[in-house]
């Protein structure tokens, strides 16, 4: 995640209680989804940005997660995510994002 975006997320998380915050990801593969999930939970693993060593522990979900999908408008979802549902390795992505959501140990 680039530095400016890390700064923004960091500021949002600092400014108020984080218990009503959720991060939703849209990456097409497990590697990049995992990287962003890790950044907003355990801190920036590349040690490049403001979130390096800052474990925000934000709840993070991928947009492909059925738990998230079922709350969204079906038609819009099909239009914006339908194609990626067909192409992405959904299980792999969800596994990695859950791994970090659960603490990343």
């Amino acid at each position: 995640m680039d530095l400016e975006d890390q700064e923004n997320v960091s500021r949002l998380a600092e400014g108020s209680a984080t218990d009503d915050m959720v991060v939703i990801l849209g990456q097409p593969d497990a590697g990049s989804a995992g990287l962003f999930a890790e950044t907003v939970t355990r801190g920036d693993p590349t040690w490049a940005g403001p979130l390096a060593g800052v474990p925000l522990g934000l709840p993070v979900y991928h947009i492909l997660d059925p738990e998230i999908k079922e709350q969204m408008d079906t038609e819009l979802y099909q239009e914006h995510v339908g194609l990626m549902e067909l192409t992405a390795d959904v299980d792999d992505i969800l596994r990695w994002v859950k791994h970090y959501r659960d603490g990343g140990e």
Binding site: Q27, P28, D29, G31, S32, G34, L35, G82, L83, M84, L86, T87, A88
Partner: peptide, 20 residues
Amino acid sequence: GNSGDVPKTNYRTLAAMAVM
């Protein structure tokens, strides 16, 4: 750098379009 295989993602997207 965990940035994925960009061509593969694009080709799979094209393939999915052909399926749809």
